[in-house]
Amino acid sequence: MPTPPATASGTPAVAWPGLARQVFISRETDPWFNLALEEWLVRRHPAATVAVFVYRNRPCVVIGRNQNPWLECRIGEMRRRGVGLARRISGGGAVYHDLGNLNYTVVVPRPHYTREAPFGPVLDALRGFGLAPALDGRHAIRIEGRKVSGSAFLVTSAAALHHGSLLVSTDLAALDAVLNPDAAAFETHAVRSRPDVVANLAEWAPGLTSARVTDALLDAFGCAGTPPVELSADACRRQPGFLAVEERHRSRGWLLGHTPAFHRTVTVGAGGCEVRIGVTVREGVVESAAPCPADAVSPAAGRDIWQSWIGQPYDQVCDAGPLPLPPPHPQP
Rank of each mutant, 00 (worst) to 15 (best):
L179P: 11
A173I: 06
T170L: 04
V148P: 03
H249D: 07
N101C: 04
G321M: 08
P4M: 05
L167I: 02
L323F: 07
F53R: 06
L255T: 02
V62Y: 07
N34W: 01
G130I: 12
F53D: 03
A20H: 09
F153I: 10
A185S: 13
I75Y: 03
S210C: 15
L201H: 01
S169E: 08
P291Y: 08
C236N: 00
A125T: 08
L208W: 05
G92M: 10
S151R: 12
A117Q: 12
V285K: 13
Q312G: 02
T7R: 12
R146E: 12
A8V: 13
H263K: 05
L154V: 02
R138T: 00
R237N: 13
R194G: 04
L325A: 02
P206K: 01
A159N: 08
P299V: 14
G284L: 02
G241Q: 13
T226N: 03
V106D: 02
A13G: 00
P12G: 05
L256K: 01
W306D: 13
A202E: 11
S308Y: 04
N101H: 01
R27V: 05
S9G: 12
P291E: 02
V107A: 01
H189V: 10
G128Y: 02
R303G: 05
G164P: 04
I89C: 07
R79A: 04
W306G: 12
R127N: 00
G207M: 09
W204P: 03
R74G: 01
R27L: 15
V61L: 03
A160T: 01
R27T: 12
Y55M: 06
T156R: 11
R74T: 00
G137F: 08
Q316G: 10
A211F: 06
P4Q: 05
L126F: 10
G150C: 09
A94C: 10
L99T: 11
G271R: 11
A20V: 04
R276E: 09
H329R: 15
A15M: 14
H97G: 00
P5L: 09
I277M: 13
R43F: 00
E116A: 15
G91P: 10
A199G: 09
V108P: 06
V266C: 13
Y113E: 08
C292Q: 14
T259Q: 11
A160E: 11
E116R: 14
S151G: 10
G272E: 03
C318V: 01
E77M: 07
P59T: 06
A51Y: 06
R146V: 00
G137A: 12
Y55R: 02
R192S: 07
R248K: 13
A47E: 13
I277L: 08
P240L: 00
H112V: 11
R79S: 06
A20C: 09
E246I: 09
G91L: 09
